[in-house]
Design a protein around this nucleic acid. Structure first.
Lengths: 150, 150
DNA sequence: TTGGCTGCAAATATTTTGCACTGGC
DNA sequence: GCCAGTGCAAAATATTTGCAGCCAA
């Protein structure tokens, strides 16, 4: 888990490096992303921003997310059905475990990814740039609810 | 690689088992899916169907794909950017290698998936139902083109 | 015969784009 | 002051839904 304050500073640094401007909206957005423990959607970030900047538009959220993606400061997860989610804590590919009932997403421990990618690259001749490893299922809570209905 | 003829028969059997009807459009669609070596999109299936049934609508394609998904006879791949692709040859989760330039998708050899899922389930407490393992990068052909521009 | 299937159009959902105005640097 | 960023609306995508007529079983 990255330190939110450090992540925020890192993102601001990268933004300025690239000649980007730090508007109040962006600062609020970077804070939200740096502090988010989960994997928020554009819509969720939008809702949070509106608390401070009620006139903010979703388009701005998308534009800034796209910029941060290009800077390598957020990771976009394309999940079936639920649209895109964004991870500002670990902006590099890593596995995810997704509950198909409640939508909860957690990061499991799993190291061997790099080695596997190398093996796949060797086998296929592809030059692998990034990978995606998702596990879908029921989280412990949703399993219980399934067994003991109301 | 499954035998297209056998896959077709299997799909028809499952369809009838569930009380579904085998319309000419569906038969054509099942053929295309059973014979497809690649991972066609709904749009691509649509284009092929139109050769035999020019009045077919995309909605029908989507409805039938959804049905086949429920029957477990096709696998839907949710790929970033390119929309959904469908695999009728191996309708169970397996890894994919995707070229981010030309869109080519291939199936690499990779066995340990089941074991990894079990380990993740143990570690997280989730009940894993299916997984997704995608590698993105440049296929050999696109790598060459990148090195020697026109 | 009849209810599932088809095809058309309209509705949804999500993300992107165009553009005039604004404000960070 | 310049130009990147913002916000609004419209456009572009991708997929789903409603429904009247049709046809496979």
């Amino acid at each position: 888990m990255a330190d939110p304050q450090k992540r925020l500073e890192q993102m601001i640094r990268r933004l300025k490096e690239k000649g980007g401007r730090l508007t109040p909206q962006r600062l609020a957005m970077l804070r939200i992303i740096a502090e988010s423990k989960g994997h928020p959607s554009a819509e969720q970030i939008f809702e949070q921003i509106k608390a401070d900047f009620p006139t903010t538009s979703l388009a701005t959220i998308y534009k800034t997310l796209s910029l941060l993606k290009d800077l390598g400061e957020v990771l976009e997860l394309n999940l079936a059905g639920v649209g895109s989610r964004f991870d500002g804590n670990k902006p590099y590919p890593h596995p995810h475990v997704i509950c198909t009932k409640c939508g909860q997403i957690i990061d499991p421990e799993f190291e061997p990814m790099a080695g596997i990618s190398r093996e796949i690259a060797r086998q296929t001749g592809y030059k692998i740039t990034h990978e995606q490893l998702n596990f879908f299922g029921l989280c412990p809570k949703c399993q219980q609810e399934g067994q003991a209905p109301e």
